[in-house]
Computed example of a mutant assay.
Amino acid sequence: MPLHFNTEIIDEFRTNAGRLGGPFEGWTLLLLTTTGARYGKEHTTPLGFVEDHDRLLVVGSAGGSDRHPDWYRNLLVNPTVTVELGTETWRATAVAASGAERDELFAKVVAAAPGYADYQKATDRVLPVVVLHRLPEETYTPPDRLDALADELVAIHDGLRADLAALSDGLGTRTAPGLTVELRRRCVTFCSALAVHHGGEDAGLFPYLAREYPEKAAVFERLRTEHDTVARVLDELRTLLARVDETGPAELRGKFERLRGELETHFAHEEAEVVPLLKAAA
Results as ranks from 00 to 15, higher is better:
Asp169Phe: 00
Glu221Ser: 13
Arg211Phe: 04
Val110Arg: 03
Ile9Thr: 03
Ile156Phe: 12
Val188Ser: 03
Leu278Ala: 03
Gly48Pro: 09
Ala113Arg: 14
Tyr140Cys: 09
Trp90Val: 03
Thr34Ile: 04
Thr189Asn: 05
Ala166Met: 11
Asp202Cys: 02
Ala272Cys: 02
Arg134Asp: 07
Tyr208His: 15
Glu152Gln: 14
Leu237Val: 14
Pro142Cys: 10
Leu194Ile: 08
Val59Phe: 07
Thr189Glu: 12
Asp66Ile: 04
Ala92Arg: 01
Ile156Met: 07
Trp27Ser: 13
His266Pro: 01
Leu160Glu: 13
Glu25Tyr: 04
His4Gln: 12
Arg222Trp: 06
Ala62Leu: 06
Val109Tyr: 01
Asp103Thr: 12
Thr265Met: 02
Asp169Glu: 10
Ala193Phe: 07
His269Phe: 15
Glu273Asp: 15
Phe206Ser: 00
Val275Pro: 06
Lys279Pro: 05
Val230Gln: 01
Phe5Val: 13
Thr175Pro: 00
Val95Lys: 00
Asp235Lys: 11
Ala155Trp: 09
Gly60Gln: 00
Thr239Arg: 15
Thr141Gly: 01
Leu164Ile: 10
Phe267Gln: 10
Thr15Arg: 15
Thr139Met: 08
Ser61Glu: 02
Phe5Leu: 12
Leu31Asn: 06
Leu75Trp: 09
Pro249Ala: 14
Thr28Leu: 11
Glu25Arg: 11
Ala210Trp: 01
Thr173Gln: 05
Trp27Phe: 12
Ala218Thr: 08
Leu209Tyr: 00
Val219Gln: 03
Glu42Phe: 08
Phe106Arg: 00
Arg232Thr: 15
Thr35Gly: 04
Val130Leu: 01
Phe13Lys: 00
Gly254Ile: 04
Gln120Phe: 02
Ala117Pro: 00
Gly261Cys: 11
Val131Glu: 10
Gly159Met: 07
Gly36Ile: 02
His269Asn: 12
Val77Lys: 15
